Each structure stands twice: as C-alpha cells, then as structure tokens.
Amino acid sequence: MPEYRLQRLRGGWSIAAYEDGKRVSRRRLECSDAAGAAAEFSRIVAEAERPVDPDVRTIWNAYVADKAGRRIAENMGWTGRAVLPFFGDLKPDAISEKTCRAYVATRRSAKRGSAAQQARLEAAGKPPALGVADGTIRTELNQLRAALLWAEKRRMIGRAPAIEMPSAPVARERHLTRREFERLLDASETPHLRLYLLLAISTAGRNAALLELTWDRVDFERGLVFLGPRHVLRPQKGRATVPMTNALRAALSDALAYRRGDRVITWAGEPVASVRTALGKAVKRAGLPKVTPHMLRHSAAVWMAEDGVRMEEIAAYLGHADAIITQRVYARFSPAHLRKAAGSLEVGGPRPAG
C-alpha cells in the first residue's frame, strides 16, 4: 500500500502517493487553505485505505469508531459481544433470512445474565437461565442493520442486506399510580435516589438525561430544568426544557446546598452511573412490583394525560418531535379521549350538547 503525503502545489495543496520512496502519483486538492486541505487529505486517504469487500466485523468496528463519543458507540461495545461471534466473519452478501433466523434461535436459547450469575445458579444446583428476550435480539439486529446501511452509504459495500428480526414485543403498559409513587418515595432511604425520583416524575426525563444533568442546566431564576444542552436550536431527542414543580424546586435547593461536583445526581460526591440497585431495594421496601427508570417517565406522561393535558403539550414535555406517537400511546388515558365520538352514539334519550 502506498504512503500518502500532503504537499504544497503551485499556491495550493496536493496529495502525493509514494512507493519505495518514489512518488508514483500526485493530485491537486480542491481546498486551498491548510485546514480544509488537511481534512480533504484525511478523507481521501481513508477512502483509499478502506478495505475492499469488508466483513461484518470490519464494518461494525468502523461504524463504532465513526460514532465515537456517542451513546450508540458505547452500546454497540456491549451488543457486539453477541453479534460479532455470529456475524463477524461473514461478508454482508452472505447474510440472508436463514442466517438471521439462525441468529434469533441461537440467542433465544442462550444463557441469560452475567457469568457470576450463572455460576451462582450452578452452585445452587439450579439450571442456567436461558432465553434472551426478543426485544434484546431486535436491538442487536437493529444495530447490525444500522452499521450495514452506514457502510452502504459510504460505498464500503454495494448494498446492505435485509435484516430479518423477531416481531416487536408488546409494549409494557404498567405505570405507577400517584399513591404507588408516594410509597416508593417514602421507601427511598438515600438522598440521591429520592432526588432522582422527584426529577424523573417532575421532568418526565429519560434515565440518561437525569443522570447526566449538571447544575449549570438548573435555572432557579426562571424555574427551568434543561435536560439537554442549553442554547441549542435542535435539542437532543427526548431532552426537553421543562418548568420546575414546587416539590422539585425544594428538593433541588436542598441538594444544591450540599453539592460536591457538577452533576446533580451524586453519591458520596461522585456521579451516579445507575440507580437500579437503590431503586430495586426501595421497590421491595414499598411492596411494589418491578419498577424501572423508564416506567417513571411513562407514569409522568400518563398522569398528565389523566389530568386532560393536551397531547401536543405532553409531547413537548417528553421531547417528542411531534404529537403522533404521544397520541398513539397516551390518548387513551385522557378523560376527553373519544368522548365526543361516544356522544354521537347515545341512544334512548336526548343526545348531550357538543
């Protein structure tokens, strides 16, 4: 493979290829300024050194590198442990419906849980927990599809294959009632969990947004919480700017007096990576069924719908791009939902006005 060098050429810039110390080709670059030429040079070299007919592992790793610093790159570091042993050595054109179905069958029969959890089951003389959920399998295959479509767009491959996956699982509809939330809040023994719960139910924020929230995005003067970066024209998905409730303002004011660092949710002065352990313990003390962080966001949306808040306003609170998905999921909880339509079907007496 030749060595590529960025060189000056007649007041501009060029890319030159060398083999065994001798220049074998040279090409003028379109950009005349140094920064633009350097970026153009890097892009051309990357294209030239891109593998021909890459396998899935190469594409997967290139996609993760391209998304470095974003949550998807971190997630694919985990899902790759399942996807790459099966698909990694295959070329994209070798992936078929049969291949995808074989992967689904393999994952459905795979052991669940960590190695330590499996070891504890074996030590107790219990059979291993089997069967990865279809929702997890869909996530893995969706990420494979995203990587292949990315490779097609960048002409690493001719065409991304179709990825067959199991049907989407039925959405969980359970939410916490206000009384259940109060029980959960009362059962929270650690300050960081109590603050997290109040943030979650008061902002309807996603788990990641709550754990990543920093004090510079808590505006006490205007009574606002910025779940995403401030001063951006296009907020991140699901990260709205919402007003503080009275209960949340009081909790944040108390926490601010003892802050140790930039993050709002901390334990012993350190950022909290997950509240699942503390939340699980509080759930048991409260005598409730399983509660997940996402269930808190769902519960907040249901409460708003039950109070007759317009779907457009709920969508804005949740950070949805439009109210279509909000309408589909939460309209049935609204007391006004289909009420006028039902009035049109009244029989045996005068029809209600309106």
Rank of each mutant, 00 (worst) to 15 (best):
A68R: 15
M165Y: 02
K126W: 05
G69T: 06
P127C: 12
L121R: 15
K153H: 13
P92D: 08
R107F: 03
R120Q: 13
F87M: 04
K98R: 14
K67C: 14
R108I: 05
V170I: 14
Y63D: 01
A168H: 06
K91L: 15
D93E: 12
I163G: 04
A133D: 14
A124S: 13
A168Y: 01
G131C: 14
T99F: 04
M76K: 00
A110P: 07
G158A: 11
R70Q: 14
A123K: 15
S96V: 01
P85G: 09
R154P: 00
N75K: 07
E140G: 07
D66Y: 12
L144P: 01
S96L: 01
A124C: 03
A129G: 12
A73T: 04
N142R: 14
T139G: 11
G113V: 09
R107V: 01
R108H: 07
S114W: 12
G80S: 03
P169N: 10
V64G: 01
G80Q: 00
G77R: 04
T136W: 08
Q118K: 11
R120S: 11
P166N: 06
Y103D: 02
E152P: 03
Y63T: 00
T79Q: 12
D89G: 08
V64I: 15
A162V: 15
T106C: 05
F87A: 04
G125H: 09
L130R: 15
S114R: 09
G113K: 11
A62N: 07
E164S: 11
R159M: 10
I72M: 04
A105I: 05
R155Y: 07
M156V: 03
R154I: 06
A123G: 04
L141H: 05
K153D: 15
R154D: 12
R81E: 09
I137S: 02
I163A: 04
R174W: 10
T99V: 14
S109N: 13
R112A: 07
G113W: 08
A147T: 06
R138E: 06
R154V: 08
A168L: 09
C100F: 01
A65R: 14
A129M: 13
Q143I: 00
R145K: 15
N75T: 08
R81A: 06
E173I: 11
R70L: 11
P92K: 06
E152N: 09
P85Y: 10
K126T: 04
R174S: 11
R154W: 11
A123W: 03
D66E: 15
E140N: 09
R145H: 13
Q117T: 09
R107T: 02
A110I: 06
A73E: 03
S167V: 06
A146M: 11
E152A: 10
V104M: 04
I137D: 02
V104D: 00
G135P: 06
L121P: 04
I95S: 04
Q117C: 05
F87R: 02
R107S: 01
I137V: 15
E164I: 08
E164D: 12
L84G: 01
S114P: 07
G69K: 07
V83L: 10
A105Q: 11
K98E: 11
S114H: 09
M165A: 13
Q117L: 10
D134H: 07
Y63I: 02
I72Y: 05
C100K: 00
H175M: 06
I157C: 08
G131K: 14
V64W: 00
F87Y: 13
N75G: 04
G80K: 01
E164W: 13
E173T: 15
